[in-house]
Every structure is written in C-alpha cells, then in structure tokens.
C-alpha cells in the first residue's frame, strides 16, 4: 500500500465474468496509480481494495514461487507478481485469465484438471532399492541431481499450458508441466518407477501429442524447460515401444 499516491496512472483492461450475472465475459477498464516498483498484481490489488471489491483473482506469495497468479498479460501468459507495470507503460494493459482453461470467474480458471494430470503420472519416488530411515539417506552426486534438478523447479503455474497450442486443441493432452514432473521422477537415481510412468504417456493423449512448438519452455518463469522433458520422453517412449515389441516377440 503506497503511502503517498503516485501521479502516474495506467489503464488496466480486465476481463470480467461472473457466472451468476453475465452471459459472457467482457472487459472493464480501471485507472491504477502506479510506481516503478509496482507489479501487475499490485495493480489488481489496488483495484480490489479501492475501486471494485468484487474483482476475483488468485494470488499469495507475490514472489514468483507459489504459482497462483498466472494470467494473460497483453495476450501472453505471465505471473502477475513478477510482471511490472513500468514495463507495460503507457498501457493500456489487457489482463485475461490463462487461455486454454475454462473461466470460473474474472481472472480465475479451473485448476483441477491440471492437478489430476500431475497426479496421474505417479509423482512420487517408487524406490529402486527401498531403505528404512535408520539406514540413512541415499547417495546422489551433484551430477546425478542435475539429471532432474531443473524439472523439480516447476511451480505448477500452468503458464506452459496456456502457451501450448496442442493443449488448446486437446484438453486431454497430458501437457508440458506434467511431462516435466514425470521427467523429474524418471530422471531421479533413487527412483524405480520409470516403466509405470512411461506406460501412462504412451496413449494418444500422451507424449506423442506434442508437436514440438516449444512455446512451453519460452514462457516458463523458472527455466524448467518442459519441452526438453517432452523430447526426452519421446525418445524414451519410442525405445520403450521398440523394447516392448521385442519383449512380446520373445514371449511368442
């Protein structure tokens, strides 16, 4: 909350939609006073506190780690908390909910399907060699960590899904974020669940749906590089397909 009000203002055009009132979404404009250190999120907070308390958007940490405040800023998926109004001046700035997701209200989209995708890929260690706590930690060298470290940095903000044309065309596509998480576990030296996860992404909504556009990695605010995860799994999935054929042939 700024103590002295800045003279500088910028117009925020916010997509509004209230299911009990509106037949369809429409834009509403607000003039926001801003300083050079203010984020888009702070602009929205100013609207909510002073101009219109009914405006709905998600936020929490305001330091780009909780993943709540993804939205379309001038048509591109961004985190509102680390996108600054000074960079968007003189405006107007168009704010819309993340594209490719159903709108629940104003800037809030449905997250549940994305979370189900995460849950579907067995997002936990299935130990290669089970160990008790008394036996201590597993050894894992820094080089072994590097195999999966960047994929473990995903904050589940869903910007990559908003950028992904394939997900836009087919909401059942497993998508970049869940693929990154899959690779986070499949690349972990402690894990033995690779086969189970690869089986999950073999189908038509799996890894092969990706058409290698690469926008997911461009918009990622944490340099997770989900496109790389998808590519690695395409080659693994191809190899897996080939090996499974061999296995079948050996059996018959």
């Amino acid at each position: 909350m700024p103590e002295t009000r800045s003279d500088k203002t910028i117009e925020l055009r916010v997509l509004r939609y209230c299911p009990s009132k509106d037949a369809e979404p429409s834009f509403q404009s607000f003039q926001v006073h801003y300083t050079d250190d203010m984020s888009v999120l702070q602009g929205l907070q100013q609207i909510k506190a002073e101009l219109d308390g009914s405006l709905a958007f998600r936020w929490s940490c305001r330091m780009a780690v909780c993943g709540s405040c993804g939205m379309m800023v001038n048509g591109a998926p961004m985190l509102a908390c680390n996108t600054f109004l000074r960079e968007l001046a003189p405006g107007p700035v168009t704010l819309e909910p993340l594209q490719n997701f159903p709108i629940e209200r104003d800037l809030i989209v449905t997250v549940g399907d994305f979370v189900k995708k995460i849950e579907s890929i067995y997002p936990y260690i299935m130990p290669r060699q089970p160990k008790t706590v008394e036996q201590g930690t597993y050894l894992q060298t820094p080089a072994e960590m590097q195999e999966y470290a960047s994929f473990a940095d995903c904050i589940n903000c869903m910007l990559c899904y908003a950028a992904c044309p394939q997900f836009g065309a087919n909401p059942d596509f497993i998508g970049p974020g869940a693929m990154a998480l899959l690779q986070r576990y499949n690349g972990d030296s402690r894990d033995g669940g690779q086969q189970a996860r690869l089986d999950q992404i073999r189908g038509e909504d799996g890894v092969w749906s990706c058409t290698a556009v690469g926008l997911c990695s461009e918009v990622c605010p944490k340099q997770v590089d989900p496109a790389n995860a998808v590519n690695q799994n395409k080659s693994k999935s191809a190899l897996d397909f080939f090996l499974s054929r061999l296995r079948t042939e050996n059996v018959t």
Binding site: P127, G136, T137, L139, Q140, T141, P142, E144, Y148, R190
Partner: peptide, 16 residues
C-alpha cells in the same frame, strides 16, 4: 532423512 527418501532434492556434497 524421510523427506530425502520421498525425493526432496537436498543439496549434496561431491560424494553424494
């Protein structure tokens, strides 16, 4: 240690 078994990527020494 339990968190480590569950996959928490604790930073490591060169020896793992």
């Amino acid at each position: 240690i339990q968190l480590e078994h569950w996959g928490c990527p604790w930073s490591r020494l060169p020896d793992g």
